[in-house]
Design a protein around this nucleic acid. Structure first.
Lengths: 203, 203
DNA sequence: GACGAACTGGGACAGTTGACCCAGTCGCCT
DNA sequence: AGGCGACTGGGTCAACTGTCCCAGTTCGTC
């Protein structure tokens, strides 16, 4: 393995770890599996990280920080059409997320696994909370943009609306991961968009 | 340990395993931890089960089969009042589930972990599918009862409605497990009940 | 009450895993 | 060019885990 700084090595290991977790699950992401994926030796692992736990914690932090809005408002307009209603816009956004899920199910599965891992110990619980706060944050931005685009106004705090949307999204994710039923997922999307759009006054 | 039949031992071990998984997570549910919880020796484990995998598979089967309707229709009437609308009835049912979740979060967390475990290998995937089919089955019964009680009629196949409700329930579960925000959960419940009740024609 | 089969307990074993150590190598800085 | 600190590779260790074995015990049946 070529020489690299500790910082570079840390990120290389985190990337490798994410790939292993996505492909085989967190339980299979042993130090050896991660190091193998990264093409390094075991010693390099413990040179860059104190312990496996430290890497997993940092992995969660990284993926959370990296999480980007799945949808830009402009795309949604393009997808839903110019004079789209808020409901149509929300539905388009959810469908966009669903496409993202279909394109890379393993990634969402890995996210879910990391969440559950974090939920299992009190000192890691905040990592899960931060993860969901980040989700909500991104959704808030999208919801505000959608309201602005359609001239609608959210009747309750947009953070509340976002929290509900995150819950619906999670449910969509898990159930689809289990049954891979696209039509059923589409019905969930439609129902969720319907419920959410009723939380705003149209203009 | 007193003598017991292999069948009894299997169920005792499964009960013990469920307790360990609920309390400490699936990863910590080693043969020794399970056997310790059950107060048996290691040999008894492998007398009753071929392998740990066999126990986990059977554990999933057991919890799924045991899953009961969280709500009986009569209770809902009592909770929602005599002349309750379908929307109120659905909301009461979801709230009842939420109470169940609050009362025993570890159990739902264990269920989620078992699902994800099953999702990780092709030969176990059907276990997760069966788990969710069972959920949907129970929900179908509740939805049919609710429609009958209010004289409403589901506009789409009740199985489809149930599938959406299961997704919403899952989302409710995960997000609440993360942030333990009761008020947010209540908003999810209200939104879900709203969306679902719109899938029926009132009478 | 004796017999055989069902059952139990303790110990053992091999494989895996996280962690670590040390001898060596490389690259930067003076 | 030389030296020093950063970095690397391989080997090793103890702990843990799933599995198995075997000697012994208990129970139902004749």
């Amino acid at each position: 393995m070529a020489r690299m700084s500790a910082a570079d090595r840390r990120s290389a290991l985190i990337e490798a770890a994410l790939r292993v977790v996505s492909r085989e699950g967190l339980a299979q992401a042993t130090t050896r599996a991660i190091v193998g994926e990264a093409g390094m030796s075991l010693a390099s692992f413990h040179y860059a990280f104190e312990s496996r736990d430290e890497l997993v914690d940092e992995l969660i932090g990284t993926v959370v920080a990296r999480e980007r809005k799945a949808v830009a408002p402009e795309e949604l307009i393009a997808a839903a059409g110019e004079g789209a209603s808020l409901a149509e816009l929300v539905e388009a956004g959810l469908l966009r997320y669903f496409e993202h899920l279909r394109a890379d199910p393993e990634h969402e599965q890995a996210m879910l696994e990391l969440t559950q891992y974090a939920l299992r110990s009190p000192e890691r619980h905040p990592l899960a909370v931060a993860q969901y706060e980040r989700y909500a944050e991104l959704v808030v931005e999208a919801l505000e943009a959608a309201a602005e685009l359609t001239g609608a106004r959210w009747r309750l705090p947009v953070e509340h609306v976002a929290r509900v949307l995150v819950a619906f999204t999670d449910g969509l994710t898990i159930t689809w991961l289990v049954d891979r039923d696209d039509a059923a997922a589409a019905r969930v999307v439609a129902a969720a968009a319907d419920a959410l759009s009723r939380m705003a006054d149209p203009r």
